[in-house]
Design a protein around this nucleic acid. Structure first.
Lengths: 189, 189
DNA sequence: ATCGCTTTTTGCCAAATGACAAATGATTTC
DNA sequence: GAAATCATTTGTCATTTGGCAAAAAGCGAT
């Protein structure tokens, strides 16, 4: 779990005692591909940090099609903060897109950290802001491009994901059908 | 400028003295349609709050096409926080999409507020997080939909903008050509 | 009202993508 | 290793959207 400590130390300082507190409040879980980390309609009850594997955040549109909003891979927080903070039902599914190991902080433990570690909230705030900005920055360049360009940009944005998750997840992220993506890939080789 | 005070009081409490401090650190400016609030390549030096009118945030892709990332209308903050906070050059243009009145806090004044008003940073954090979440939430549903559906969703997301800005801005937001948008609108009527 | 300018609409054809179904390939299970 | 299941590719055709150019509409200045 040292990866997580390294990760948060980028955003603020913690002494050894505080680091131990953090580690003592986390548990490690493993999700098999397709299992859910959290589900639409339920209040998100935990904050996670991906140790290895890939998750995807997805939802269903009004035609029942599954849309992948974004992927979350190693060394990133996974949490629906809107739902977690305000204790309102989430609107999205967070699903393992491949077998995944996650370090999990149940709500109570996470809140505890906020109470006993001075500066914890500030660190979390920085992490969340950066993640949100990243989401905006990753999505925007995909607008106004044809499917092939979007796919190439996806490869840049998520260089280590394409070979680990089903083609259909990538297609639904790019907003095209699986068949179209298959053809696009053929033309690129 | 009372709109701005109402706006920030949603995110935290301020007493009258603090409110006066805020107001005394702002100036009001007016931008004519097409004038820039900030430009790509320059460090963003101010935080704005739209009193009336509409701005758009845009950039140019590698084909030289102008892409509208999003719109900002009344009672919203306008700032490239990435650029403003880290004092790095912005990658986007913020342009008046119609004649616009903006309440402006130059960098120095804004920092001053952070020093003298306890809790100011927390309020700003909340505002920025919410705005970022909103950007993500507004963009995501537009992926994986055909052009007509995207346009209809745009009308829901930004109900008061379509008649105030050029069609071409909306088209570049939706990722379609102006001609296509024109045809789509014809089919909807 | 007219001119000049910008914005929007339309026509035409080509290219991209979707829908659906079938074939192929990969992986797991027994 | 054969069967079953799941993932990917391919074929065919319909539909959507783009590219380009011209026409029409809107609008401000004189």
């Amino acid at each position: 779990m040292e990866e997580f400590i390294e990760y948060i130390l980028q955003f603020g300082n913690l002494n050894q005692q505080q680091i131990d507190l953090v580690l003592n409040n986390a548990i490690e879980i493993e999700l098999k591909k397709d299992e859910y980390f959290s589900e639409a309609g339920k209040v998100s009850q935990q904050v996670g940090f991906v140790l290895n594997g890939v998750l995807r955040v997805c939802y269903y549109n009004n035609k029942g099609e599954e849309i992948t909003k974004y992927f979350i891979d190693e060394n990133n927080l996974v949490v629906d903060f809107e739902s977690f903070e305000n204790e309102i039902p989430s609107t999205v599914y967070v699903q393992a897109a491949a077998d995944t190991k996650i370090m999990v902080f149940p709500r109570k433990n996470w809140k505890e950290l906020s109470n006993i570690i001075v500066g914890w909230d500030a660190i979390v705030h920085k992490i969340v802001s950066r993640a949100l900005m990243q989401k905006v920055e990753r999505r925007s360049p995909l607008i106004s491009e044809d499917a092939k360009t979007r796919y190439l940009k996806f490869l840049e944005i998520y260089p280590n994901i394409v070979n680990r998750v089903p083609l259909s997840f990538v297609a639904s992220y790019l907003g095209i059908t699986q068949s179209s993506l298959s053809r696009i890939r053929k033309n690129i080789q």
